[in-house]
Each structure stands twice: as structure tokens, then as C-alpha cells.
Amino acid sequence: MKKTVKKIVLQTDFGLEDGAVSAMYGVAFSVDSSLGIYNLTHEIPQYNIWEASYRLYQTVNYWPQETVFVSVVDPGVGTERLSVVAKTADNHYIVTPDNGTLTHIHESIGVVEVRQIDESVNRLPNSGESYTFHGRDVYVYTAARLAAGVISFEEVGPICDLNKIVSLPHHQAEVVENKIVGNVAILDGRFGNLWTNISRELLFDYGVKYGDNIEVTISNSYTIFYQNKIQIGQSFAKSHVGDPILFINSLDKLGVAINQGSFAGAHHIQSGDNWKIQIKK
């Protein structure tokens, strides 16, 4: 019988310029050299918990059940924030600080149980005086022990109250006064596209159809960064190079782009709950 490789997927804001990510690999392999370790990304903007939360939402469902994710975007390292392991409704595990990183997963997939990491047991030996690299000393060590079957989920530590898990402020897309109001949930950074939280279902229930020209307004607080009509197309091939286009992205959400250009760069737009987008027929 073919052996199943137990999988760990890493996400951080560390980058790859130094040895931090490699050290995490080494700790995991020291627990069990047969583990499969993969990168989600190490290019989360420094301290950007919102983006860490979204990238998990973008990725987790495409991995097999029982994959263990480690997400370390941790501006509160060394404070009283909890270190936890969450079990999702689809039977994945996420090892992370309790700082809002679970926001999108809890909303979209569901978190069924969270346990605080008991560092008296689940901490890299001889690392007790280190308070600045929990990604290495606590998170990946616990993840490796869980993935390898050294500990069960119950042995991670005491159960947490789900109602007290930290959630980032965020608003659902909705129809308000005959307009769809949502947010720019994330940037498709390499290409400069905007990914919104407006679902295809909401958009087409509102009455939009492919080929329509839609009035799009993007703002932050009281400042409008973009306002114009854009056609919604089924693919980029339906527009000319340099033209703006609305499209449905790989998560079945509305995207905003410039064909072979950067919409975000051209209009100085960023992402987060405070970046609002309005759609009007």
C-alpha cells in the first residue's frame, strides 16, 4: 500500500532573504523526516493579518483533509495573545496566533474547535528563553507533531471558547439603495487586479449580465479613487490591451482589472475592509 505523505503548508510574512523559513523546515523535519512541507506564501506584507486571513481562505479548501497549515503573521509576538490550533469544518488544521488570522476561514468554511497550544509540552526543546520566533519554536513544532501523529488534536492543549476567538472587522457585500456595496478584499499583487467580496451570485441576482457596462466607484473613507463605467466580460480576451474590465475570479467573486496592466497601481488602490466598492447598473 502506498504511504500517504502527511502535509504541512507554511504561510508567513518572513520573506526568503534569510534563514527563518529554512529553520521552520528544519524543525518540522526533526520531528518527522517523512513529512511533506510546502509553501503557501512567505510574501504576506509585514504585519498584514487581513491578507494572511484571506490567503488561507483562498487556498485551504484545495488541499486534502488533515493538511496542517501554519500561518505566522504575528505583530503581537511576545504579548499575551494566544497561540492556537483551529480545526475547520472540512477537517483541516490551522496553527496560528489568535489575532484575526482565522477571520475568513471561520466565516467561509467554519471553525468547529480551537485549542490553545500548551507550550509546556508543545514547544521546541531548549527554546524556552526565546520570545520572538514562535513560528519556529511553537507553531511549526506543534504542527509537525500533529501532522506526524506524535500528538492528537486534543493533546495540543486546552479547548478555547469559539466566541472569544479574535475576528477582524469586516462587512458582507450587500445591496443598499439599488447599489451593491462591498469591499476590495485583496489585491492580486503580481498583476494588480482587485479581488472584491462581491459574489457572482449576488452580482447576477442584482441583474448584471455579461457585456453590461457597470458604474464602478472605489473609495476609502470619504476619498473616491475611481469612478467610471466598466464592461463585465467572461475573459480578458474580450477586451483590448489597456482597457479596464470586470470579471469573475477564481474564487467566484467580482474582480476589477486592466487588461495587461495594473488597476491597483494605476489608481493607487489598496485592500481591506475600509476600501469600498460600489456597483450600479
Rank of each mutant, 00 (worst) to 15 (best):
K253N: 12
I224A: 07
A264I: 00
N213W: 13
E215I: 07
T217S: 11
T217R: 15
N220V: 13
K229C: 09
Q231I: 13
Q260N: 07
N249Q: 01
T223H: 13
D252P: 00
H267Y: 15
S262Y: 03
G272R: 00
K229Q: 15
F236D: 08
S219D: 09
V241R: 14
V216R: 07
S271K: 07
Y222A: 13
Q234H: 12
G255D: 04
F236E: 13
V256C: 01
I224H: 06
N213G: 08
Q227Y: 08
N249R: 01
N249K: 01
P244Y: 06
I224R: 12
P244A: 04
N220A: 11
Q260S: 05
I230Q: 09
G255C: 02
G272C: 03
S250G: 09
F225I: 06
F225V: 09
G272Q: 01
G265M: 04
F247T: 03
S235E: 09
L246T: 04
I232Q: 08
H268K: 11
Q234I: 12
F263Q: 00
F247S: 04
H268Q: 10
S239R: 14
T217P: 05
G233V: 15
G261D: 01
F247C: 02
L254C: 00
F225Y: 15
Q234R: 14
A257M: 03
I248G: 03
S250L: 08
I245K: 04
D243Y: 05
S239P: 01
I218E: 14
F236G: 08
Y222I: 12
N259H: 08
H240R: 14
P244I: 04
K229N: 14
E215A: 10
D243S: 11
H267D: 04
H268T: 07
I224Y: 07
D243N: 09
I224G: 06
S219C: 10
V241A: 11
I230V: 15
S239V: 14
I230A: 12
Y222D: 15
S235R: 07
I248L: 04
H268G: 03
A264W: 01
Q270F: 07
N249M: 02
